[in-house]
Write a protein that binds this DNA or RNA. Structure first.
Lengths: 200, 200
DNA sequence: CCTACCGATCGGTAGG
DNA sequence: CCTACCGATCGGTAGG
């Protein structure tokens, strides 16, 4: 796929595109084998370059991982912030539905988050912050729902937010192990219905 | 710690004990680094033997992993089967409480289950079967509760069982990333209270 | 239970 | 963007 025969249109013109190509290959490899298990030679081979060439675009293997996580960040942010209250819950189901269509992203987060629970892991802090952010957004949405009277009685926004995020992660493990065993989006929808007031 | 100076009491007398020592070291290493990331040399070094000696007790690295999983199986089975109906839900909270006291086991399952979502992984089938078993037991308990009228209206045993197991797994990821951020047992208890009829 | 060693693979450097 | 190469480490074998 890589290694076009057309050549560059100007000096450095292909660098940004090359970085992108590399990150997509790294994304694939890390999704399948994790960070520890994925090799730079494998990443390079898939796009037909020498593994040392990666080090002209990224200073180290962990820098490559940082690039992959940054790239996914851009893709995942939009949407969740805009909707208010119960709208966010519907968007969470939408996120799960999208994950179900793009297993690669689900694999990446699943394997990397588990690997990154080790304190020395290069993605450890990134995942810690990601959970603070994700749980925080969900909590804010639930608090907004509470103010609007959309939240079912007895639901604590802070603890419920942790459970919702935990449920999403846990469903993914079962789904990745056996994709026919579970319908993640349906499970999520059914669960979230229990959090809102019955009328919604 | 290992390598006693007393010598053996008889031929092969120490073999079973040695196997046990090796498995405990392997358990530690796989918990911290996963299967791919954990090395036989590390496992051996922790108990003061050469890594090749491991291969006198286990035929390969994946055989070592199988031994570790088998060992944990023995530890985890008791209890869950005995109690009936709502008693099982209380025991689930007890399991979570125990996980919270022994982080090593939690780490092992978390990192290995994510790694083992890859189809070629030596523990892939083990985890698939484990989920069938765990979800199945939980489902049976919920069905028993339904027959006794202990289950809240609208709760589907099969899908609820998948969610309960998913919740346990997901809580563990957040907990391992930041142990002060979450009280797994309390979260579990609070959630399960929502599954039973209010009187229980 | 050991030493000695195998071929393979790892991330990264040197130098062009 | 490459070749050539580094030292380290991997799982496993041979042979005692």
């Amino acid at each position: 796929m890589g290694g076009s025969t057309t050549g560059r249109r100007g000096p450095y013109a292909g660098t940004a595109a090359r970085r992108r190509t590399i990150l997509e290959s790294a994304f694939e490899v890390f999704s399948e084998a994790g960070y520890r298990g994925g090799s730079m030679r494998d990443i390079a081979q898939r796009i037909g370059i020498a593994h040392t060439t990666l080090l002209h675009h990224f200073s180290s293997k962990s820098d490559l991982l940082a690039g992959v996580l940054e790239l996914r960040d851009e893709h995942d942010q939009p949407g969740l912030a805009e909707a208010g209250g119960a709208g966010i819950l519907r968007q969470l189901v939408e996120v799960v539905r999208r994950n179900q269509r793009t297993p690669g992203l689900t694999e990446l987060y699943c394997i990397l988050s588990a690997e990154a629970t080790a304190p020395g892991h290069p993605a450890h802090e990134w995942f810690r912050e990601r959970y603070v952010r994700t749980v925080g957004h969900t909590r804010a949405a639930l608090e907004q729902m509470a103010q609007r009277g959309e939240l079912r009685e007895g639901v604590d926004p802070a603890r419920e937010a942790q459970r919702i995020v935990a449920l999403m992660d846990g469903l993914q493990v079962q789904w990745l192990l056996d994709r026919d065993s579970i319908d993640m989006a349906a499970q999520m929808r059914e669960y979230l219905r229990r959090v809102s007031v019955p009328e919604i």
